[in-house]
Amino acid sequence: MTPDAPWLIAGLGNPGPWFRLTRHNAGFLAVGRLAERHGARFRRRGIGSVVAEIEVDGKRVLLAKPQWFINLSGRPVAGLMRRYGIPVEQLVVVQDDLDFAFGSCKLKRGGGPGGHNGVRSVGDVLGTRDFVRLRFGIGRPPKGQSVGDFVLKKFSDDELAALPAVLDRCADATETLVQRGLNRAQDALNVASRPNGR
């Protein structure tokens, strides 16, 4: 960790209003919820990103939405890290994830991209995958629907109704990560995912 450097929470997604509530934009939605919680606004900054700045437990945190398409997310993320001197240990990439049911949120450091081209782009440009990923579960497509079509479809009505609570869980986990570290944040997410929080 570099105490004087800010954290960077980079949500992955596609720019433009058409994509706003699509499953592939779960990362944008999660960092947007964090910004709302702290009364912060996104402004264009750096290489191809809009950025909001918040403070969590006295620590400076940058929230970013790269404005290149999701498969090219690596260069905007790397540009922000260079500009602000952010080490990879203080980078969190928020992504949609087909491997978990909708409503699940998981934190993990490192590992392969699991077919997510945005995560692959970040790892390829940085030359390392040793960053934390907040994986926002979107579930698998129904039989007969391609993955590509599924991730670019908007959330269903039932999912939209549940979305605020899921985004709050992601925001809670991210704040705990910055405050208390990865293990504590993972524990908190596991408790929050159990029925009645037990």
Rank of each mutant, 00 (worst) to 15 (best):
Glu159Arg: 11
Gly123Pro: 04
Leu12Asp: 01
Gly111Ser: 14
Asn71Arg: 07
Glu36Lys: 13
Arg82Ala: 15
Leu126Met: 07
Gly58Phe: 12
Gln145Met: 15
Lys143Met: 12
Leu152Phe: 01
Leu189Gln: 00
Val132Met: 07
Leu152Met: 05
Val132Asp: 07
Pro15His: 08
Val125Ile: 12
Pro66Gly: 08
Asp172Ser: 13
Gly11Ala: 08
Asp57Pro: 03
Val122Cys: 13
Leu177Ala: 09
Lys108Asn: 10
Ala171Met: 10
His38Arg: 15
Phe136Thr: 02
Leu189Pro: 01
Pro141His: 11
Asp57Ser: 14
Cys105Gly: 05
Gly48Thr: 04
Gly139Trp: 10
Gly27Asn: 06
Ala26Cys: 13
Pro17Val: 08
Thr22Tyr: 01
Leu134Ser: 00
Val191Lys: 10
His38Phe: 15
Leu91Ile: 10
Arg45Tyr: 06
Val147Tyr: 02
Leu8Arg: 02
Ala5Gly: 06
Gly123Gln: 02
Arg44Pro: 07
Val178Pro: 03
Lys154Cys: 06
Leu163Lys: 11
Leu80Gly: 00
Leu21Tyr: 01
Asn196Leu: 14
Thr128Ser: 12
Ala185Cys: 13
Gly112Pro: 09
Tyr84Gln: 15
Pro195Ala: 15
Leu182Glu: 08
Gly79Trp: 05
Val122Asp: 11
Trp18Gln: 15
Gly181His: 08
Arg129Tyr: 10
